[in-house]
Amino acid sequence: MEMDIKGILEHLPHRYPMLLVDRVLECVPGESIIAIKNVSFNEPFFTGHFPHHPVMPGVLILEAMAQAAAITSFTAAGKKPDEKTVYYFVGIDAARFKRPVVPGDQLRMELKVERVSRGIVKYKGKALVDGQVAAEAELMCTVRTIDS
């Protein structure tokens, strides 16, 4: 399954400036996803990270990967997030950053579901730029409903 920005907005609770997925190239619900983040000089984080040498913060690369992972989890569950749905990180293991991500790069995120246990999903993934690994990590996430 592919997904454009309209589909992404239906399957993620995130919005500007924290929406970090632009397109889904391939999604096998509950199994794997390949998604794209086009990195523009207009990203708000580049103003301060760093003005003289803009680099996408590693934590935001991991966040983009987690958002892509959330799409496969929501589609597998047959659910769409609402104003009471929050998708949380519960762990990040083996995170490594191999190259900087800079304006003009296209970040390709490839994630696979490794395990599902008691509402926590563990993913293994990588983020690539031009076929080179920019970051890799094992992510653990969960969906929670919040009270207003």
Rank of each mutant, 00 (worst) to 15 (best):
Met65Leu: 05
Leu25Phe: 08
Tyr16Asn: 11
Pro51Phe: 01
Asp22Thr: 07
Leu20Gly: 01
His49Phe: 10
Lys37Met: 05
Pro44Ala: 08
Ala69Asp: 11
Ala69Phe: 00
Glu26Ile: 13
Gly131Asp: 11
Leu19Asp: 02
Ala134Trp: 01
Lys122Arg: 14
Ala76Pro: 08
Val39Gly: 00
Gln106Ser: 13
Lys79Ile: 10
Thr75Gln: 12
Leu60Pro: 09
Ser40Asp: 10
Pro54His: 06
Lys37Asp: 04
Met109Gly: 13
His52Thr: 14
Met18Ala: 09
Asn42Ala: 14
Asn38His: 12
Glu26Met: 13
Leu139Trp: 01
Val86Asp: 06
Ile61Phe: 03
Gly30His: 07
Val113His: 04
Ala35His: 00
Lys84Ile: 06
Val121Ala: 12
Phe50Thr: 06
Leu111Asp: 07
Arg99Gly: 11
Arg99Glu: 14
Pro100Asn: 13
Val86Met: 11
Leu62Gly: 04
Pro103Trp: 06
Cys141Ile: 15
Leu62Ala: 07
Phe97Arg: 06
Thr47Tyr: 11
Ile92Asp: 05
Tyr123Val: 14
Gln106Val: 13
Ile34Gly: 08
Leu62Phe: 01
Ala69Tyr: 00
Ala69Asn: 09
Glu31His: 15
Ala68Met: 07
Tyr16Gly: 04
Pro81Met: 05
Cys27Thr: 10
Ser32Pro: 12
Glu63Ile: 04
Ala35Gly: 06
Gly119Lys: 08
Arg15His: 05
Leu139Val: 12
Met18Trp: 14
Ala135Glu: 09
Ala134Thr: 03
Glu138Arg: 14
Leu19Phe: 10
Val102Pro: 06
Ala70Cys: 12
Lys122Gly: 04
Arg99Leu: 14
Ala68Leu: 04
Thr72Arg: 01
Ser117Gly: 00
Gln67Tyr: 04
Ala135Asn: 09
Tyr88Gly: 02
Tyr87Met: 14
Glu26Ser: 15
Lys79Met: 10
Lys112Thr: 15
Glu136Tyr: 01
Gly104Ala: 12
Asp22Asn: 07
Thr75Val: 06
Val101Ser: 08
Arg108Ala: 12
